[in-house]
Simulated assay, not measured.
Amino acid sequence: MRIFATTALALMAAATPAMAQDGTFQGPRVEVVGGWDRAQTQGVGGSGFVYGGGIGYDLQRGKTVFGVDAEVTGSTLDKCEFGVCAKAGRDLYAGARIGVAATPNTLVYGKIGYSNGRMIGYTATQRIADNLDGVRLGAGVERSFGNVYGKVEYRYTNYSQNVERHQVLGGIGYRF
């Protein structure tokens, strides 16, 4: 019995460094995201559900966190008025973020980057798809639970051709 107890204590002591990663915002990460999506142009727009995934890498120095990330999302946004319809397609994003570890397990951050969104316009007889380039600004809060984290984020994207997009989403990720 003593050998079993000694072995169990030795294994727990060996596992402690892995548990010490709580609160760190450094290293590569992957995540899935989902939430509310609204696109509009000149006051006309619609809402849907945004979904997708991303990758990133963060570097923490003291309480300051610098990172880069990339994301691919889709949307259920599909709005029709007077026989003319607009649909949001895929969205590609690459950018940077900077944040502050407000607590050992909570990161508050802002982000900026390039976004390329596909917008599709269609009627009963025509379909026009266009890729729009834009700038995304965002802010969020990330909470670490060891290697797993959750986040809530708001972001605004201003595309060419007077198209704006607002999104509020949540995400779950894994930091390696």
Rank of each mutant, 00 (worst) to 15 (best):
F145V: 09
V141W: 06
N158Q: 12
R143T: 12
D130I: 02
Q161N: 14
L132W: 11
N116P: 06
F145E: 08
P104F: 06
I112S: 07
S144W: 08
A129G: 03
M119G: 02
S144T: 09
N147T: 12
N147V: 08
Y109R: 03
M119V: 01
G113I: 02
G134A: 01
L107F: 04
N105F: 05
V148F: 05
V108T: 13
Y149W: 10
N162R: 15
N162A: 15
Y109H: 04
T106E: 10
V135T: 10
V152K: 13
A124M: 13
N158W: 11
Y114V: 12
Y122M: 01
E153F: 04
L132H: 10
A124V: 15
A139W: 14
L137K: 02
G150D: 02
N162H: 14
F145D: 10
G150L: 03
D133F: 13
T157N: 03
G140I: 08
S160D: 15
K111M: 08
R155K: 14
R155S: 14
Y122A: 01
N162P: 12
G134D: 00
N131C: 08
V152T: 15
D130N: 02
K151E: 09
I120G: 00
I112K: 04
D130R: 00
L132A: 13
E164L: 11
E164N: 14
V135Q: 07
P104A: 10
G146I: 07
G146C: 07
Q161W: 13
Y149A: 03
E153T: 05
I112E: 06
P104G: 05
L137W: 03
E153W: 01
K111N: 10
Y109N: 03
